[in-house]
Amino acid sequence: MEKRRVVCPNCDSINAVPVNRPAEAAKCGRCHAKLFQGTPAELDAARLERHIANSDIPVVVDFWAPWCGPCRAMAPIFAQAAKTIEPRARFAKVNVDENPEAARRYGVQGIPALLAFSEGKVVARQAGLTDANTLHGWVERLVVCSNPG
């Protein structure tokens, strides 16, 4: 039976989710939280690394800061994308003020910055505030590319 690795947004355990079962109902084997909650996971640098290194679905990360007006405007758009696109992709947010090393590691020079990871590597970037349709289309293309067939 084919399985996909999915990292729990609650306890960061790596779970094997059978592809022939509804992912929306999948729960963590360790903490029993839903693996897909329809909201972006708030991650620090260490948790971010665990998610991108151990996930078989794309991980879309919003690098942001609380003082940033465009970041605050982007937040509900990003949250809505998480609600409609999960479980085909994981959505996460990283506060660059609290995690400057993560921003440096991935070359984030301005915020908001969206980075998409697949197989542990950055596969796409989107700089600045974007509207819901553009974000949705951008992520949908990533999902299709990472899950051919």
Rank of each mutant, 00 (worst) to 15 (best):
V122D: 05
D97E: 12
F63Y: 15
H136C: 15
E49I: 13
T130G: 11
A16I: 06
C68Y: 04
A116P: 05
W138K: 09
W67T: 09
P9T: 04
L129K: 03
A75F: 06
W67F: 01
E49V: 14
F63I: 10
G29E: 09
R105I: 10
P22N: 15
C8A: 00
G107E: 11
V6A: 10
R47E: 00
G149Q: 10
N20T: 11
R47W: 03
Q109E: 13
N20Q: 12
A41C: 08
P100N: 01
G110W: 14
F78E: 00
S146G: 12
L129Q: 15
N95P: 00
P148Q: 09
C28G: 07
D56W: 02
P112C: 11
A102E: 06
T84M: 01
A124E: 15
V143S: 14
P70V: 03
A75Q: 14
R125W: 14
C31L: 13
R21D: 15
H32P: 01
S55W: 05
L135N: 09
V19R: 12
Q80A: 15
E2Y: 10
Q126M: 15
V143W: 03
N147K: 06
A45M: 10
G120C: 13
C71S: 05
W67P: 01
Y106N: 07
L115P: 03
P112K: 03
A82F: 02
A89C: 12
Q109I: 12
W67A: 13
R105C: 01
A89T: 12
F63R: 00
L114E: 02
L114K: 06
F36V: 07
F36K: 03
L115D: 04
H51M: 09
L115F: 04
G128Q: 08
